[in-house]
Design a protein around this nucleic acid. Structure first.
Lengths: 119, 119
DNA sequence: AGCTTACTAAACTCATTGGTTGTACAACTA
DNA sequence: TAGTTGTACAACCAATGAGTTTAGTAAGCT
């Protein structure tokens, strides 16, 4: 049955949900690198890394240029902003609620039976 | 061959990589809700939602209590902080590099053929 | 006790994913 | 030109994931 037609956020989160790909991103945060350079630290075939890179590229997290035979990769920050934004909004909403709950608990701490509340 | 033994960050990102689950989280950011309440808006069986909830709980993004037969769910903010932190660090690193690259390009009045760099 | 409500568990599809090998191809090097 | 380097593509496989149906449990209602 399979799920949704792959919305952008899902694709991006899915791309981040793999330690190998996150390691690649971490490596790229120190500068551009070719597929071979990225593959070197891993006990995986170059083809496997190539696939991971394709996933990251498709998610918009990296982009690639061309330099002779090499295809150097670099981070694409806009997509990071995108996911950071989504997370941030949810975190914020929670904090808002938490603050209200805090007030509420503080109010209850006064042992005032008049304190009525609702969701 | 299957990859890693599911590190925490991977599990959490994977949990976020589904629009249904993100919708559930969005709903929960407006307050606690039971499985039935969470299932209502979706064209999915309640069992499917129950599975999604289990995934979110396993990822530490939500927690559940008990109220009669109901199992109300609520957001668990610590995990949001965790992923926000990871994203934030990478975004920051990139910004640092971008700044340096900027300086670098500015400093580069004329051609320097091999400007390779590393950590 | 029996019925209903709210949920969980198990068994089964089917599609996707992460990995492999083997091959191909384009761009440099000798 | 021939050989090497850097990468991609295709076919395949095992494991996971998202969904279903069918039961099963547990708490409240009458």
């Amino acid at each position: 049955m399979s799920a949704a037609p792959a919305d952008e956020l899902s694709v991006t989160f899915a791309a981040l949900a793999d330690p190998t790909r996150r390691a690649i991103l971490t490596r790229l945060s120190t500068g551009e690198a070719t597929v071979g350079q990225l593959a070197a630290p891993f006990a995986l075939t170059q083809q496997a890394i190539s696939k991971h890179i394709k996933v990251l590229e498709h998610a918009g997290l990296i982009s690639r240029s061309r330099a002779a035979q090499a295809r150097p990769c670099r981070l694409e920050p806009a997509q990071f902003e995108y996911v950071a934004d989504w997370i941030g909004r949810h975190r914020q909403t929670w904090h808002d609620r938490y603050d209200r709950l805090d007030e509420h608990l503080a109010a209850l701490g006064e042992a005032d039976p008049d304190a009525t509340e609702e969701p």
